[in-house]
């Protein structure tokens, strides 16, 4: 299915990351890597620390221990703005769109980082600022076509149904042309048809743009279909790491999912 892609060297290396909120331990010494052009799934029961892991990767949370290296640059604390500049984009488990803005404006924010004209030029809206706006609009329209959301361009996102909001959020992330895309349960709460659409989009992004993807997902069949390798977290620890088949047959994973007492 994804045979045409060439999986490369590690683009993201997580090394011994630990994170706690007061007494609540969210992550404990987690290490794994993500390779170029790879789809890497993170799975685990509720509260296992999956979302926290994504938050560490793009700097929303700062781990107490361990490091994250993106494109070979090792750091512990990065802020989300820097992470975006380095080429990391993401979606959220609970949709984080800008509710008062239209679909088009939401997606355009994904390109803010690439827009160079200053506010004075924009106030005049002539020459450079106008040209830039049109150039980026064209890029955004390509993303809109790709995700098949032309018909809702001008709709305020607050008025859209859940499934479409998820798609707009993906569009905003893609508009940034990221090298690494973090997707936190992009299919949660969707019906079968919507899930199939979303799966197709994820595969196409990976295939056509070569984007490396970290995907959190609860639906096992989706994970098995999409991912190249899977990390399994349980109570903040990594309990398994491997291909979907290896992970599926792993004793510890089966226990974690069946709720065997620790």
């Amino acid at each position: 299915m994804t045979a045409g892609r060439k999986i490369g060297r590690p683009i993201l290396e997580i090394d011994g990351v630990s994170l706690a909120f007061g007494g609540v331990v969210a992550l404990q010494g987690v290490s794994f890597d993500v390779r170029e052009h790879e789809i890497r799934a993170i799975i685990g029961p509720n509260g296992a620390g999956k979302s926290s892991m994504l938050n560490v990767i793009n700097g929303v949370y700062h781990p107490q221990q361990g490091t994250v290296a993106f494109k070979g640059r090792r750091r512990r604390n990065v802020d989300p703005h820097e992470a975006a500049q380095q080429g990391i984009a993401r979606t959220f488990q609970n949709i984080a769109l800008f509710r008062g803005m239209t679909v088009l404006d939401n997606i355009m924010t994904g390109r803010n980082l690439k827009m160079k004209s200053n506010f004075l030029q924009q106030a005049v809206y002539w020459g450079a600022a106008k040209r830039e706006e049109l150039e980026h609009r064209a890029k955004v329209e390509a993303v809109i076509d790709f995700l098949e959301i032309q018909h809702i361009r001008k709709t305020p996102v607050g008025r859209l149904p859940y499934g479409l909001q998820k798609r707009v959020e993906l569009a905003r992330a893609l508009a940034a042309e990221p090298e690494l895309l973090l997707l936190d349960e992009p299919m949660a709460g969707m019906n079968l048809e919507e899930k199939q659409d979303m799966s197709r989009f994820v595969l196409d992004v990976n295939d056509q743009m070569g984007t490396s993807i970290v995907l959190i997902e609860h639906d096992m069949s989706v994970v098995m279909d999409l991912s190249d390798r899977v990390v399994v977290l349980d109570y903040g620890r990594k309990i398994a790491d491997g291909t979907p088949d290896e992970v599926r047959n792993n004793r510890g994973v089966i226990d974690a999912y069946l709720g065997v007492a620790h």
Binding site: D79, P80, F98, M101, D105, T109, N112, F119, R172, A173
Partner: peptide, 20 residues
């Protein structure tokens, strides 16, 4: 323009604004 979208993004959800 982009400055206006940045303002509205900060208004609507500041964490997401930083992430983009």
């Amino acid at each position: 323009s982009s400055i206006g979208r940045a303002w509205m993004a900060v208004r609507d959800m500041d964490v997401a604004a930083e992430v983009v």
